[in-house]
Design a binder for these strands. Structure first.
Lengths: 225, 225
DNA sequence: AAGCGGCGTAAAGCCTTTGTAAAGTCCTAA
DNA sequence: TTAGGACTTTACAAAGGCTTTACGCCGCTT
C-alpha cells in the first residue's frame, strides 16, 4: 500500500493511475492531516510526498513521519516542482529515501517507486514477521514487541501481549476461549478455567480508554474492533 | 570507503575532492577494469558509476556488481550527462540505489551520498563495520572495540562486548536467549543453560548506573532501551 | 419475576522465570 | 606446570506473572 500526498488533483490522479496500473495499492490524500487519520488505521509500505503543499509542506510531514515510532522506518519519496538544489538537500537530509523533480515521466516515476520498495524489502527481509498492526489509537509493533495507546507506550505481560496480537491480527473476527487457549496456551483439551477472562480484564485495564476495543461476544468469545 | 568510476578527469577530481572534504575515504578509477582489481582487495561501502564510459559502460558494471556475491548488497549511485528518462529507468531497474543527472551541484551530490549511506547503514546494521552506537550515557565504538559509560571507558570481556553490541544494534528490539546463543555463541540447538543470564548480569554490573538500559522481557528475552 | 448460565473482578497462593553467588572448567600466557 | 582470567554450571533466593477461587452482576429464558 502506497500513500500519496499531493494537492494538485491532476497530478494526483496521474500518479495514482500510473501506480495502480503497475499493480500497486494506492491511496491519495490532499493534505497531511487527512492522511494522518488513515495512518492511524493502517501504515503503508511507502509514502510519496509533494513538497509544495498549501498548509503544512511535505518537508514537515516528512519530519513528523520520521519521529513517529510506527512510521520512522517506512521509505519516503519527495516530489517537487521547484527544481532547486536546496530543496533536494533538505529532503534528503531529513531522511527521505528518494527525490523526484517535476516534471517527471511516468516511467521514471514507477521505476523509482520500484527501486525504493525493493531496497526497503531487501533490508527488512531478515525481520521474520514484521507484523505491524494499528487500530484506533492502539498500535502493535511485533519486532519491538511494543504496544502504544494514543502514542504512549503500554507495558504488557507475555500473555497479555500475545492475546492482543492474536485478536488484532484479525480485527472483527471472534475468537472462542477454546481457540485462544490453543493458540496462546497450547492446550488442546477442554479446560474449565477463567484464565482467559482474567487476561482480557487486565488487558482492557492496561489499554485504558481504548480498552473498549476488546469486545465480549456473549456465548462465543472475544474480538477487537 | 567509496569507489568512483568516471572517465572525465575534471569531474573525477571534483567528485573526489568534494567527498574527501566531507570526511569520506575515496578511490577514483578511470574504468571498470581497474576498479575490479581493487574490489578484489577491498570492498567499499558505496559505488558511484558514470553511465557513459569508453569501453564498458556504467550500466554493465552495475549489472556485474549485482551478480557478484561480495558486492551485490553494496549501494550504487549512477551518474549521467544524458538526462534521458530511459537511462534513469535502466539504472534503477538494474538495482541502482540512486541516480544523479549531470550537471549537479556539489551540495546535492554530497547529500545524496550521505542519504544512500544512511539508508544502507540503517538496515544492514547487524553486519559490517563502522558501527558506532550511543544510547543514554553508553557509547560503543566498534572500530576501537571500546565502550564508555558517561564518558568513562569500561572494560568488557569478549562475550560481554558482543552481547552489548548485539542488543544495541537494535534498541527496543527484544532478543530471545535462543537468538542470542545463535548470534554470539553460534549454537543453533536448544540449550538449557543460564549462561546468557550470567553474562547479562556481569554486563549490567560493569555498565554501573547505566546497567538499567539492559532490560528483561519476561518469557521472551532481553533488550536495551 | 425468578432462575440460570455467562461474564467481570478482586484477592491470594502457586509456580515458573530470572537474579545472583559460588564453585567448577577451560584456555592462555608466563 | 602453574596462575590467572574468562566462561560455564549449579544451586538457591527473589520476583513476578499466572491461575484459581470466590462472589457479584447482568442478560436471557421460562
Amino acid at each position: 500500500m502506497i500513500y500519496i500526498v499531493e494537492d494538485d488533483i491532476e497530478v494526483r490522479e496521474m500518479e495514482t493511475y500510473a501506480l495502480k496500473s503497475s499493480g500497486f495499492d494506492v491511496m491519495a490524500f490532499e493534505c497531511g492531516k487527512v492522511m494522518d487519520e488513515q495512518v492511524k488505521t493502517r501504515v503503508p509500505d511507502l509514502f510519496i510526498l509533494d513538497i509544495m503543499l498549501p498548509g503544512e509542506d511535505g518537508l514537515n510531514i516528512l519530519k513528523r513521519l520520521r519521529v513517529q515510532e510506527n512510521t520512522k522506518d517506512i521509505p519516503v519519496i519527495m516530489l517537487t516542482a521547484k527544481g532547486t538544489e536546496l530543496d533536494k538537500v533538505k529532503g534528503l537530509d531529513l531522511g527521505a529515501d528518494d527525490y523526484i523533480a517535476k516534471p517527471f515521466g511516468v516511467l521514471e516515476f514507477i521505476s523509482r517507486v520500484r527501486a525504493v520498495l525493493r531496497r526497503s524489502e531487501r533490508n527488512s527481509s531478515e525481520s521474520t514477521e514484521a507484523l505491524n498492526l494499528a487500530l484506533g489509537g492502539v498500535t502493535l509493533d511485533d519486532q519491538r514487541r511494543s504496544v502504544t495507546v494514543g502514542g504512549i507506550a503500554v507495558e504488557l505481560t507475555f500473555k497479555e501481549y500475545e492475546l492482543l496480537k492474536l485478536l488484532m491480527s484479525r480485527p472483527g473476527t471472534v475468537f472462542s476461549r477454546q481457540q485462544i487457549l490453543e493458540k496462546i496456551w497450547g492446550v488442546d483439551f477442554d479446560m474449565d478455567t477463567r484464565t482467559v477472562d482474567m487476561h482480557i480484564k487486565t488487558l482492557r485495564q492496561k489499554l485504558g480508554v481504548q480498552g473498549s476495543i476488546v469486545q465480549t461476544v456473549r456465548n462465543v468469545g472475544y474480538k477487537v474492533q
